[in-house]
Design a protein around this nucleic acid. Structure first.
Length: 760
DNA sequence: GAGCACTGC
């Protein structure tokens, strides 16, 4: 077994991040709390802010001097400018400016290939001239990679260095400077900023891009910005979306005007099956093989729901593809899986060209990519001509009654189906084979998937909203208001965590918890951990609980992977096992073997562990900045008890008791029958455990569990364990005994204490 | 004796 070691020195990533933060402190943005400076208008002399024309802007763009940086434009700039002027949005620049001038909020609809994400912010810059008034323009994206890559592209287009006039800001990286006037950022990042600056005062224009994706962060931002727009009439707002529900955005933003620009994609022919397909996986495989046997060249993209299904399909397609090559003289077929947890070098393989034909006169080779939804939005693959869409994906659902989020294979929406089909028309006209009937498409698929806010536990959202200064959550103007029960559950949970008072006001603890990019339960546990002398250990555990699973279990080596895991096992449970893994990852041994190799040897995910390391250092910095003590019981033989107590203090709402007589556990308060997930390292079933998550799959499981003493639960969360509110049963009975024992222990202790005093 | 769709701070 691996022994527990003290935390190593700060990682390299941490040092870099610290340096970045330090430099930000020294160079706060010019617009922050400083009086407006008089700027040299330079090339912009004579132009009226919020009164420019496309012609004026284009004249500046075609000039010799970059009006924002003052530098001479490069040849490369003019080359790109030519391409830009060919984009569909370009033709409507005047129209855009007219609307932009006449209104505070507008909705902009642009399909893929319209150029909206790169061009609209630049149109805004030439009209806003933010550098002259010391403001910034923000453009939000749902994903980090998008924010980074678009910023890079636009910096090139504007002929400036990335991070200067054009930059980006994402969780672990702030690539902006005092010069920055256009900032691409994740929507979550803008939300963080709003928590400190409720009026978003440094921005003169905010562009919410990809609003149709309706991420939790976008939805909250829309509600917030709608409020801010009243307080700040000078703030311009653009909501950008793909076509589908533009009207909904318009209505929500007080009938904001709309501008729509066509996209530039190739036509995609849609085929439906004549009848319902009982086995979509089988139908999908047959369709792929049939395309390969009968259709012209061009790669195939097949959408399935998850890793196991995808790996299975890949095996079967490859096998039967070989048969087609042998028996029907088909071209060679190469099959690639694609899903999020695939290591990056494997993900990269999908960009390899299709296989060469086997003989000079043979038929062309073909590439098949079998992917989850990741290929629907996050990743685009050029060269796809055929899309096979069975019409399903895994979607998160939330059951507020038992406070469980789970993944369910469900039919996709019409919008998703359209997006999937569009993937076939990126390079040339394509075909999309839908494995459902046209009638099913029309009648059974919903228009849009439910926005995330209707499918999530809202504990952390509610905390964020409170921190944003929104007191009246019941009347907060959500675009789609969450179910009252979900809201109640979140408020209740935050109250038990003492983040909200009984009146629903943010407490000091709540304010502190909101500083951490964590689920409130984890944040509270972290904040409480110095009291148990183990904040260093809890930091590690919390970090690893908030990244994807660190344990890898390939189908081909399950037994060896399980054995490797057991080498890290701690007898008290899975949380302490995570601690051992992290210490192993930071050990001299791992460094001498090489971290990648060490992870492979131990069936661990390098990606998860290093991102855990990043998260840990970010959390650690937040701890330091709020004077939360960093402390460790060190090599003490008892360290695990400190950690277990800290875990109990944070996870008291997720406790379960072994059922007397029968197998399995029963959750406290919710009274759910559950089993400990087989992935646990626990060899025996302890009486009481706390668990990290409740997963609903083939059975009800609790996953990542650690043994605790019930006395701790009652002691640390007396309000939650007020037995008056418990339903009669096994759990209540044993808790009553626990409460009695705690009481009598206290009495005895007091007696002894008094006795001592008496005799002294 | 199982399965982590995807994203974000």
């Amino acid at each position: 077994m691996h022994s527990h070691k003290r935390q190593k020195t700060d990682s390299e990533a941490e040092k870099v991040a610290e340096a970045a933060e330090e430099s930000l402190k020294q160079h706060p943005h010019a617009s922050q709390n400083t009086p407006m400076k008089v700027h040299d208008e330079g090339e912009f002399a004579g132009l009226k802010r919020h009164g420019t024309t496309a012609e004026q802007a284009q004249k500046l763009e075609s000039g010799s001097t970059n009006p924002f940086s003052g530098a001479k434009f490069s040849q490369k700039y003019f080359d790109i400018l030519e391409v830009r002027r060919d984009l569909p949005v370009h033709a409507q620049r005047d129209q855009f400016l007219e609307i932009f001038h006449s209104t505070q909020i507008m909705v902009f609809v642009g399909e893929t290939g319209s150029g909206k994400t790169t061009q609209i912010p630049q149109f805004v810059l030439y009209d806003e001239m933010p550098h002259l008034v010391g403001s910034q323009v923000a453009c939000t994206q749902p994903r980090r990679v998008a924010a980074m890559s678009v910023a890079k592209r636009v910096a090139d287009e504007m002929d400036v260095e990335l991070g200067q006039e054009v930059g980006y800001s994402i969780r672990f990286e702030n690539k902006t400077s005092p010069k920055t006037i256009l900032k691409y950022m994740t929507d979550g990042m803008l939300l963080r900023e709003a928590m400190e600056d409720h009026d978003l005062s440094r921005y003169s224009c905010i562009i919410l891009d990809e609003a149709h994706e309706r991420t939790l962060a976008t939805d909250i931002l829309m509600g917030l910005i709608k409020q801010v727009s009243v307080r700040r009439p000078d703030l311009k707002i653009i909501i950008m979306s793909a076509t589908l529900d533009a009207e909904k955005f318009q209505t929500y933003f007080n009938d904001a005007p709309l501008l729509a620009v066509p996209g530039r994609t190739h036509p995609v022919e849609i085929y439906y099956t004549p009848e319902f397909q009982r086995d979509y996986l089988d139908a999908a495989i047959r369709t792929v093989l049939q395309i390969h046997a009968t259709e012209d060249d061009g790669d195939i993209l097949l959408f399935l729901t998850g890793e196991e299904e995808i790996e299975d399909a890949c095996r079967r397609i490859a096998l039967e593809g070989d048969e087609l090559v042998r028996e029907q003289n088909c071209g060679p077929l190469k099959v690639y899986p694609l899903y999020g947890s695939l290591p990056p070098h494997q993900q990269q393989k999908i960009f390899e060209p299709a296989p060469e034909k086997l003989t000079p006169n043979g038929r062309a080779g073909r590439k098949v990519i079998v992917s989850t939804n990741i290929a629907e939005t996050s990743l685009t693959i050029d060269g796809i001509v055929y899309v096979v869409d069975p019409g399903f994906s895994k979607q998160k659902v939330y059951n507020p009654r038992i406070r469980v989020e789970s993944l369910l294979v469900s039919p996709i929406s019409k919008a998703s189906a359209q997006q999937r089909a569009g993937r076939a028309g990126r390079t040339r006209p394509g075909k999309c084979f839908r494995l459902y009937t046209e009638e099913a498409f029309q009648k059974e698929l919903v228009e849009q998937s439910y926005p995330e806010i209707l499918r999530s536990n809202l504990a952390s959202t509610v905390l964020e909203l409170k921190k944003l200064g929104i007191d009246d959550l019941v009347h907060f103007d959500f675009m789609d208001p969450p179910a009252p029960e979900t809201m109640m559950r979140a408020l209740e949970e935050l109250n038990y965590l003492q983040c909200l008072s009984d009146e629903g006001d943010l407490t000091a603890l709540g304010r502190l918890a909101s500083q951490f990019p964590l689920d409130p339960m984890l944040a509270v546990m972290l904040i409480g951990s110095p009291a148990f002398k183990c904040s260093e250990e809890i930091l590690t555990i919390v970090a690893l609980l908030s990244v994807p699973n660190v344990f890898v279990r390939p189908a081909s080596a399950r037994k060896r992977a399980d054995e490797a895991k057991m080498a890290f096992a701690h007898p008290d449970g899975d949380h302490l096992t995570l601690l051992n893994v992290y210490d192993g990852f930071n050990s001299d041994e791992a460094h001498s073997v090489g971290l990648h190799q060490w992870c492979r040897d131990n069936f661990l995910s390098y990606r998860s562990l290093s991102s855990g390391q990043n998260v840990r250092s970010q959390l650690r910095r937040i701890m330091v900045s709020h004077d939360l003590e960093l402390i460790s019981p060190g090599e003490s033989r008892n360290y695990h008890n400190y950690v277990r107590k800290a875990l109990a203090a944070g996870f008291f709402m997720q406790a379960a008791k072994k059922r007397s007589g029968s197998k399995g556990y029963i959750t406290v308060k919710d009274n759910q029958d559950v089993l400990i997930h087989p992935s646990t390292v626990l060899a025996v079933e302890p009486e009481w455990v706390i668990y990290n998550e409740f997963v609903l799959t083939s059975k009800n499981y609790i996953r990542t569990v650690t043994t605790v003493n019930p006395e701790w639960l009652v002691e640390f969360a007396p309000k939650y364990f007020d037995l008056k509110h418990f339903t009669n049963g096994d759990v209540k009975l044993s808790l009553e005994r626990v409460v009695d024992k705690v009481k009598s222990d206290k009495k005895r202790k007091r007696g002894v204490d008094n006795g001592c005093k008496f005799y002294q």
